[in-house]
Amino acid sequence: VPQRAWTVEQLRSEQLPKKDIIKFLQEHGSDSFLAEHKLLGNIKNVAKTANKDHLVTAYNHLFETKRFK
């Protein structure tokens, strides 16, 4: 089981690129989880459509539901 890579403050910070969060989610989330949160596909394309709040919610949801690969 992966550990949380970032704190809530870090997740919301401008310093953390959306692409980093997407990469983490794609590496650790199950396909059904990723599909549900519309996070499947090319990281660049996902970054265009997903806002930061959406990614933070998905990140927290992944750990709450433990839907890891």
Results as ranks from 00 to 15, higher is better:
K44E: 15
K18V: 11
V1L: 14
K19A: 14
D20N: 09
W6R: 01
P2A: 05
L62F: 04
V1G: 10
N45I: 15
V8W: 06
P17G: 09
D53L: 08
K48F: 10
G29Q: 00
L62Q: 00
R12K: 12
N51E: 12
F68Q: 02
L55P: 00
T57D: 15
Y59V: 03
F68V: 02
A47E: 15
L40D: 11
H28Q: 07
H61N: 15
H54D: 15
Q10G: 04
L25Q: 00
Y59E: 01
D53F: 07
A35L: 12
L25H: 00
S13H: 06
A50T: 13
E14G: 14
K38C: 14
V8F: 07
L55V: 10
R4L: 06
Q15S: 13
W6A: 03
I22R: 00
F68I: 04
S30A: 10
N42Q: 12
R4V: 05
L16D: 01
A5E: 15
I21W: 01
S30C: 08
T65E: 11
S32L: 08
Q26V: 06
V8H: 09
L40T: 11
G41T: 04
G41E: 04
V8N: 15
A58G: 02
L25D: 01
A50G: 05
I43G: 07
V8T: 14
E14P: 15
H37D: 00
A50M: 12
V8L: 11
F68W: 06
D20W: 05
V56F: 04
P17I: 06
H54P: 02
G41H: 05
K18C: 14
N45P: 03
K38P: 01
T7C: 08
K38V: 07
T65I: 03
L25R: 00
I21R: 00
H37P: 00
L39P: 00
D31W: 15
V46I: 12
E9D: 09
K18A: 13
H37S: 04
F24R: 01
L25K: 00
D20K: 14
A5R: 11
Q15D: 11
V8C: 12
V1R: 07
L39S: 00
L55C: 05
K19R: 12
P17A: 10
F24Q: 03
R67C: 11
L39A: 02
A35N: 09
E36R: 06
G29K: 00
A47V: 14
A50I: 14
